[in-house]
Design a binder for these strands. Structure first.
Lengths: 206, 206
DNA sequence: GGCGAAATTAAACGTCTGTTTAATAAATTC
DNA sequence: GAATTTATTAAACAGACGTTTAATTTCGCC
């Protein structure tokens, strides 16, 4: 089990991995950021690699529950379910920007077999979930049977991540000035929410 | 100027950077892959960092021309221009998958100021281009004035990159078996082309 | 309050890192 | 074709890397 100290170290490591990559981050960097002795990282996690794996195990576990709750609720229609999944995804990414950056890098590089397996399983679960909602919409006659769920899936994930990555650039050109960073994130989140829902609607709903 | 040998080394380095990241790739790795002596990398490029910068300078220079040609052609309508930009982007990403992975990682990590500047300029140019085409469509009354160009831009880039990143996963679930890797890439490219154009159409065209 | 286990520390380990050196080979210049 | 510049090499460099060690401190328990 992970203690609060474990989680504290993971949090600091996550930020460094997002900024400098796994190889670009040294164990000494992590120890300094978390204000613990260098040797504690090995003592707590075994190795730098196992620390990364612990980070994935920890963050992925948090995600799983929340998604399932939405889809299994039978009181809401299929498109509203998709809307909730979209909002949920946007909120999750903005709340864990560092981790989603780390995840993106790992997905691109595809090196660590352990993380690869976790990601594969995660993708399969989310994909299956979206597919089942779309099938539900097809059976009620609400949706058109045209678009590959994987494409919609990629659009949702891809668009959100691109906006997060280009946040600073977009702040410059959109002329957004007022408010704190949190306000700006809220501005982006609602913009993305409206936009992606409209894309889904145009593509799926009859 | 870059000789053929320079370009050969950059090509090999690019593949390694995409797979293992900048820090995860050693100069010895690059030398071995390019079949040159270790010291030649410093001799040719000055340093590992400058090699990376040379890679960006080289690849970005190739891109610039092609985009401009499309937009400045006045014989074609605004939506058809967008369609051409979409196809061009898809072709470019699939033709330079390694570099676009490197670019994505660098964008996420945002470390090297030189590369940051190149990317900023590139984004500004592409963004300005798309915006001008959309304005053209608005002035002819062809387009609706609703969507932020930056969002469409993010969708195009994000969706394509997600599909490239998840190529292997998608091959598994889509049951694509027949043909070579090149055939599979062609299959994905045409799928993406049709899909993204339909998203743009639904969002922009009256 | 004393004992055993767990936590924390500074120092050291061998290995690998990017870069430089000094010597040699190849190519270019006149 | 000798002289000079350029390309290539193996070896060495100092520093940084992840991990381990052995000693010390802190803690929970009786």
């Amino acid at each position: 089990m992970l203690t609060e100290k474990h989680k504290h170290i993971l949090e600091k490591a996550e930020i460094l991995f997002a900024k400098k990559g796994f190889e670009g981050t040294t164990v000494r960097d992590i120890a300094q950021a978390a204000e613990v002795n260098l040797a504690m990282i090995s003592y707590y996690f075994g190795s730098k690699e196992k620390l990364m794996e612990a980070l994935f195990r920890e963050r992925m576990a948090e995600v799983k529950f929340k998604i399932e709750a939405v889809v299994q609720n039978s009181n809401i229609g299929p498109f509203h379910k998709l809307e909730m999944l979209i909002d949920q995804y946007i909120i999750r990414v903005f709340q864990n920007q560092a981790f989603y950056k780390v995840m993106l890098i790992e997905q691109v590089q595809n090196q660590n077999v352990f993380i690869l397996a976790i990601l594969r399983q995660y993708k399969a679960e989310v994909h299956q979930l979206i597919t089942s909602v779309i099938k539900e919409g097809l059976s009620t006659g609400e949706f058109k049977n045209e678009t590959d769920p994987m494409l919609l899936f990629s659009t949702m994930i891809g668009t959100v991540l691109q906006m997060v990555i280009n946040k600073e650039y977009y702040a410059g050109i959109s002329g957004y000035k007022e408010g704190t960073k949190e306000d700006y994130d809220e501005f982006l989140k609602s913009k993305l929410s409206v936009y992606i829902k409209s894309l889904f609607k145009a593509t799926l709903v009859k």
